[in-house]
């Protein structure tokens, strides 16, 4: 089965490991008949895809589970969602009918709220980023200091219109291509700082940005404002199920 979940509110501070423990326990509380790996210490068969960083909210996280017997996807969705703490919410479940799921997770659309930054200031920085050929940022990873080309992974970026003129908080939407190692929203912010230095963007005293993964899925070129759209990665399984 393939499941989509959301990580909302205060539970965005859960790390991926925290989620894994919570999920395994919720599966047991919900009596989902899990398949277990063979071997001396069997583990439930669960595989995770592209977890959003700790502190980042998400509406589109995915994992797959292996079951010991067939189950109704809606039933699993309801039971598992009830067993998980509020804020870790199962939003969609399909029976896995296709094999190229990981390849469909081509890109993510992120919403980045920047309290303390005006939309006008954000516009300047975004324009500078889009105008660049390449913007390299550095980040410390488990494997040491790595460099990332943010511009290369960036499909689209724009400042969202806000109802009240949004004097206090600019909202960006960016679409990033999945890559290894992955370019993350905080890399985009670092890139914005480097191309358009602004006291608000560089200052440590601004409230931290609120980042949400809105969607993750196959990338398609469209005639929309961004020129790109993200599809539902579970659609293929759903269609295969109905035919």
């Amino acid at each position: 089965m393939r499941l989509r979940y959301a990580k909302r509110g205060r539970l965005r501070f859960a790390s991926h490991r925290d989620f894994q423990r919570a999920l395994e326990r919720a599966l047991r509380r919900a009596d989902v008949p899990m398949a277990y790996s063979a071997g001396f210490s069997p583990h439930p068969k669960i595989s995770y895809a592209n977890a959003a960083p700790t502190g980042t909210a998400s509406e589109a996280e995915f994992f797959e589970i292996g079951l010991a017997q067939m189950c109704d996807p809606d039933d699993v969705r309801l039971r598992l969602d009830a067993a998980l703490p509020p804020g870790l919410d199962i939003v969609d479940v399909v029976i896995a009918r296709t094999s190229d799921f990981a390849e469909r997770l081509q890109a993510s659309r992120w919403r980045i709220e920047l309290p303390g930054l005006t939309p006008a200031e954000a516009e300047v920085a975004v324009a500078a980023l889009l105008a660049a050929e390449e913007v390299i940022v550095e980040r410390m990873t488990k494997n040491g200091l790595r460099t990332f080309d943010v511009r290369g992974a960036l499909c689209a970026a724009r400042v969202m219109p806000t109802a009240d003129g949004g004097a206090a908080c600019a909202i960006l939407t960016v679409v990033l291509r999945q890559a290894t190692p992955a370019v993350r929203p905080d890399d985009v912010l670092a890139a914005l700082r480097s191309v358009a230095p602004s006291p608000v963007l560089t200052g440590w005293h601004t409230p931290p940005p609120l980042v949400t993964r809105e969607m993750q899925g196959p990338l398609a070129e469209t005639g929309s404002a961004d020129g790109f759209a993200l599809g539902d990665p579970l659609a293929a399984d759903r269609e295969a199920d109905q035919t």
């Binding site: 205060r10 539970l11 501070f13 859960a14 790390s15 925290d18 919570a22 326990r25 919720a26 509380r29 700790t54 502190g55 703490p85 509020p86 804020g87 409230p207 931290p208």
Partner: peptide, 19 residues
Amino acid sequence: LEALLPRIQKPIQYVGGEV
């Protein structure tokens, strides 16, 4: 508190929400 959590170690320990 929420505004401080991204700046510290293991913020999950301060948010509650346990089963």
